[in-house]
């Protein structure tokens, strides 16, 4: 396995559509809930420990070879907002395309055939990590990091926030990302034996409600 493959997959410039998604930050900025680096940090921390952890566990389980269909259904049940399910599938489809071109694999072909409009992005992320020869821990790291770096980058564009402050937020979350990644792998190993029911289901009410409000705006900069 190549460690450098992790850098390729985790690179914010990996062409899988992430740049057009704010992870709920656009809605939170408009609602006045993110106004500066401190509130961005609180937002990212909340996202990390709720939908971020759920996504990381799904990605890690997919990287361990758990059935993508089962994981996709579990992700659906943990994503009540239809706008967020649409966004997750769009990103999953875009990642499927990018990953198939980068690391051709029968498993990625199979998920593309099974989900022509896209599987939930963390499911595909786990399979992409597998195809790249990476581990479940790598998949969890990628998932958790993009879950916080997406909002941070978006807030730089939305608020004109100092990019050094935004990067500082990500650095301050690093220890929590480490812990969450390790826990995600432990959970994913239990999913292998006990099924997707043991996946966490932690939710953040304002992420869901905000995503629905955002999807109804006539004009917006980010897709979600």
């Amino acid at each position: 396995m190549s460690r450098a493959a992790l850098l390729v997959l985790a690179d914010g410039r990996f062409p899988a559509g992430g740049h057009a998604h704010s992870g709920g930050a656009e809605a939170a900025v408009r609602a006045g809930r993110i106004t500066d680096a401190a509130s961005l940090e609180a937002f990212c921390r909340g996202r990390l420990h709720t939908s971020g952890v759920v996504a990381a566990c799904v990605a890690a389980a997919a990287a361990l070879g758990v059935d993508p269909g089962e994981l996709d259904r579990a992700a659906d049940a943990r994503t009540p907002s239809p706008a967020l399910r649409v966004a997750a599938r769009r990103l999953g489809r875009q990642l499927t395309r990018a990953a198939r071109a980068t690391w051709p694999s029968p498993e990625l072909d199979a998920v593309a055939a099974l989900f022509p409009k896209g599987a939930h992005q963390p499911v595909v992320l786990g399979l992409a990590a597998r195809a790249a020869g990476l581990t479940a821990l790598d998949a969890a790291y990628c998932s958790l990091y993009e879950g916080v770096s997406g909002p941070a980058t978006a807030v730089v564009r939305l608020l004109g926030l100092d990019p050094f402050d935004a990067t500082g937020v990500l650095a301050r979350l690093a220890d929590e990302v480490d812990r969450a990644a390790r826990e995600a792998v432990e959970t994913a190993e239990r999913v292998v034996t006990d099924g997707a029911g043991v996946l966490p289901a932690r939710s953040a009410p304002l992420l869901e409600i905000g995503a629905e409000a955002h999807a109804a705006w006539p004009v917006r900069l980010f897709a979600s």
């Binding site: 609180a42 579990a74 932690r202 009410p205 304002l206």
Partner: peptide, 24 residues
Amino acid sequence: CVLDQELGCGPGAPGGWDGPAGLA
């Protein structure tokens, strides 16, 4: 399973529960 949701809040809950993503 069509819905599986867990809400954690209060002292000791996972970080950010009362922040802009959680309950604000």
